[in-house]
C-alpha cells in the first residue's frame, strides 16, 4: 500500500510506502506520473517542488505497472484543494491509462452515507448526477451554476429545503447567511445549526436506525437498511411525500401543452 498525503496520518503505519507531497501539488504529481507511465521526459528541477524526487515517482510508476490489480482510493484532499475536479480527473485518467499495462481502477471515498444513492437516482431520473435545475420543466445541469454553494453565495435561490444535511455548520459563511435570509425548511433527526436558521424544522427518523429503505455503497452496490428502532417521528420519505402532495394541490406553474423541448437552453 502506498499512502500519499501532505502529513503523516495514522494510516502511515498501515502503509508500505508513504509519499509526503507538498500541499496543492496533487495535479502536478499525477500529471508527472501520467508522463512517466508513457516514458515521457519531465523537467526534473520542477519535480522537486512536489516534495518528491523523480526516483520516488519512477519507482511508484514501476510498482503500479507491475501490480496485478491496482486501485486508487481518493478523497477530499484531492477534490477540494486547488485544482478540485481536475485533480480527480487526473487520477481517473491515470487509472485508465494504466490499463494499457495492467488492471487498474479508481474509487472515490465518499464521505456521506448515501451520497452515492443520490448520484445514482438523479442520474436515472434526470440524466445528471447533481446540480440539476428544473426551471424549464426539464432537467438541466451545470456545476458552478446550479451547485448549492454557488446558488447560495450568489443569492440565486429564494427558498431551500434541506434534507439530512447541516449546511449551517459546514458551508462558507456567505452561503449560511443566504439560507438565513430566505425561507429555509429543514428535515433532520436532530435540531441542528441549520434548523435554527430555518423557518420550518421537521424532526424525522434516522436513516437505517429507525427509517427503513435502501442505501448505496460508494461502489454503487445497493444495500437494504434494517432499522433496529421504531421512531416516534415520521421518515424523511413520508414527510417529503406529504410536502409533495401538499404542493400538488396548488395550481401548477407550468403551462400545459408543450411536451417536448426540441432545443434546450
Amino acid at each position: 500500500m502506498v499512502l500519499v498525503d501532505i502529513r503523516e496520518t495514522k494510516s502511515v503505519k498501515a502503509s508500505d510506502i508513504f509519499l509526503q507531497i507538498r500541499p496543492g501539488k496533487d495535479f502536478e504529481v499525477i500529471t508527472i506520473l501520467r508522463a512517466l507511465v508513457k516514458e515521457q521526459p519531465v523537467d526534473e528541477s520542477q519535480v522537486q517542488e512536489t516534495g518528491l524526487t523523480l526516483e520516488q515517482l519512477q519507482d511508484f510508476v514501476d510498482r503500479m505497472k507491475k501490480a496485478k490489480f491496482g486501485v486508487f482510493f481518493f478523497g477530499m484532499g484531492l477534490s477540494m484543494t486547488r485544482g478540485k475536479h481536475m485533480n480527480s480527473a487526473a487520477l481517473l485518467t491515470l487509472a485508465a491509462e494504466l490499463n494499457a499495462f495492467t488492471k487498474f481502477v479508481a474509487m472515490p471515498m465518499r464521505g456521506h452515507g448515501n451520497v452515492t444513492g443520490a448520484d445514482v437516482i438523479m442520474r436515472w431520473q434526470t440524466g445528471y448526477p447533481f446540480a440539476i435545475q428544473f426551471g424549464r420543466g426539464y432537467p438541466r445541469y451545470n456545476p458552478g451554476e446550479f451547485s448549492t454553494v454557488d446558488l447560495l453565495v450568489r443569492g440565486d435561490v429564494d427558498a431551500a429545503l434541506i434534507l439530512g444535511a447541516d449546511p449551517g455548520a459546514t458551508m462558507p459563511q456567505p452561503a449560511i447567511d443566504h439560507l438565513a435570509r430566505i425561507p429555509t425548511i429543514c428535515l433532520d433527526p436532530k435540531v441542528t445549526h441549520t434548523s435554527r436558521l430555518s423557518r420550518v424544522h421537521i424532526t424525522t427518523a434516522a436513516t437505517g436506525i429507525s427509517a427503513p429503505g435502501t442505501g448505496y455503497r460508494m461502489d454503487e452496490v445497493p444495500l437494504p437498511l434494517r432499522p433496529a428502532l421504531k421512531s416516534p417521528y415520521p421518515t424523511d420519505e413520508q414527510v417529503v411525500r406529504r410536502i409533495h402532495e401538499a404542493v400538488l394541490k396548488k395550481p401548477d406553474w407550468l403551462q400545459q401543452g408543450n411536451r417536448m423541448a426540441l432545443n434546450q437552453v
Binding site: 434526470t126 440524466g127 420543466g137 426539464y138 411536451r259 434546450q264
Partner: peptide, 20 residues
C-alpha cells in the same frame, strides 16, 4: 451530459415526469 443537452427533452406535465 453533452448528449443530454442536445437531445429532445420531455417537459414535465401533470401526468408525466420530465426526462431526456
Amino acid at each position: 451530459p453533452e448528449d443530454h443537452r442536445r437531445t429532445v427533452a420531455f417537459i414535465r406535465s401533470q401526468t408525466t415526469r420530465s426526462g431526456l
